[in-house]
C-alpha cells in the first residue's frame, strides 16, 4: 500500500512515476492503451454485423478519454475490446504494451446499472474485487479483512459514503449506489478504469455531483480512464480528450483535446469556451447520425 501512496503523492507533484512495483501495475509504458486498425464484426457470413470499422486509438498512461457518439456506434464495443471481453475481428489491441487478455489485465469497470450484490453490505460489495484480484486474493483469507476494511472505508469516505459501509444496496439512492459502484471499480487500484455511461440513469444534479467526485478520484489516483458517454457536458467536464464516433459501424470522426484548467467546476460548464466546445461536438454527432458512408469493411 505504501507504494500506492507514494505514487499518488508523486502524481500530485506533477511527476510521472514508473509503474513498476505497484500492486496491479502494468508495464511502465507511456502508452496505456493502443488500438491499431482494430475492427469488430459480430456474427458470421450473411448475418454478420459490422460494429467497428478499422480504428486507431492511442491513450497515454494516466490520461482521461471520453468516447461520445450516436447510440449503437460501437463505443461500448471499444471498452469491451480494451477489457479483453471480446476479441477484435482484425487488428491488435495493446494494453500496457501487451496484447489484451482479461486474465492479465484486472481493469476496473463500471456500468450504468450499478449491479451491486443485494445480499452484501456496501463494504462487502466494494471488497469483492479484492477477493478475485491478485495479490489481494492471496491475502484475503489470512488478513481477515482488517486492513482491507480500512482501505474500503477510506475509499468510501473519498466519495462521500462514510457511514454507509454497513448499509445494504437497497437502502441507498441511485446516486449513492453509483458512488459505491465507482469504489468497487477502483478498490484494487487498477491502472485502467473503463466506464460505460456510469451516470446515465441519474438526475442532472446527482450526475454533476458525481462528475466532481470522479474528477477528484482521478486527480488523486491518476488511473487511465476510458469513459463512454452520450452526455457532451459530461465529456467536456471530465475528459482530457474527446473522441467523436460515427454511427454504426463506428469509427472515430474527430479527436479533440480539452484543455480547461483542473480542477474544473460545474460553473465552468457555463463559460463561453465550454459552451462552444459543446456546440461543436453536438453538430458533429448530429451529422454523424446520418448513415455513414460504408467503409471498406462495411459490406463484408
Amino acid at each position: 500500500m505504501s507504494t500506492a501512496l507514494a505514487r499518488d503523492a508523486a502524481v500530485l507533484d506533477g511527476a510521472r512515476v514508473p509503474a513498476t512495483g505497484m500492486p496491479n501495475g502494468m508495464l511502465p509504458e507511456q502508452t496505456a492503451v493502443e488500438l491499431s486498425d482494430v475492427s469488430v464484426t459480430f456474427g458470421k457470413g450473411v448475418h454478420s454485423v459490422p460494429a467497428l470499422q478499422p480504428t486507431k486509438l492511442r491513450v497515454p498512461d494516466g490520461d482521461f478519454i471520453a468516447l461520445v457518439g450516436p447510440s449503437g456506434c460501437g463505443k461500448s464495443t471499444i471498452l469491451k475490446l480494451v477489457a479483453g471481453l471480446i476479441a477484435p475481428t482484425s487488428g491488435v489491441v495493446l494494453v500496457g504494451g501487451r496484447e489484451v487478455s482479461a486474465k492479465a489485465l484486472r481493469v476496473g469497470m463500471a456500468f450504468q446499472n450499478p449491479t451491486l450484490l443485494p445480499w452484501l453490505t456496501i463494504e462487502k460489495n466494494v471488497m469483492l474485487p479484492l477477493k478475485i484480484v491478485e495479490p489481494f486474493r492471496a491475502q484475503f483469507r489470512s488478513q481477515r479483512n482488517n486492513s482491507f476494511r480500512d482501505k474500503v472505508h477510506a475509499l468510501l469516505a473519498q466519495v462521500g459514503l462514510s457511514g454507509f459501509a454497513n448499509h445494504f444496496p437497497w437502502q441507498l439512492s441511485g446516486g449513492m449506489l453509483q458512488r459505491a459502484n465507482l469504489c468497487r471499480a477502483l478498490i484494487h487500484e487498477p491502472r485502467l478504469l473503463l466506464l460505460d455511461e456510469p451516470f446515465g440513469a441519474l438526475d442532472q444534479f446527482t450526475r454533476e455531483e458525481l462528475w466532481v467526485v470522479l474528477q477528484d478520484l482521478w486527480q488523486v489516483r491518476r488511473p487511465t480512464v476510458l469513459l463512454v458517454t452520450h452526455d457532451l457536458k459530461e465529456a467536456g467536464f471530465l475528459a482530457n480528450r474527446i473522441c467523436v464516433m460515427s454511427a454504426r459501424p463506428g469509427r472515430i470522426l474527430a479527436d479533440r483535446d480539452v484543455t480547461f484548467k483542473r480542477p474544473r467546476t460545474i460553473a465552468n460548464t457555463f463559460e463561453p469556451a465550454f459552451v462552444t466546445l459543446n456546440q461543436e461536438l453536438r453538430e458533429m454527432i448530429v451529422a454523424a447520425r446520418a448513415p455513414a458512408p460504408t467503409g471498406s469493411m462495411g459490406g463484408r
Binding site: L85, A102, T115, I132
Partner: peptide
C-alpha cells in the same frame, strides 16, 4: 446480470469465482 459478469471477467475472475 451480464454487466456484473463483465465487471468480474474484466477483473480476471474465473467461471468458478
Amino acid at each position: 446480470e451480464p454487466e456484473l459478469e463483465d465487471v468480474l471477467k474484466a477483473l480476471g475472475a474465473t467461471k468458478f469465482d
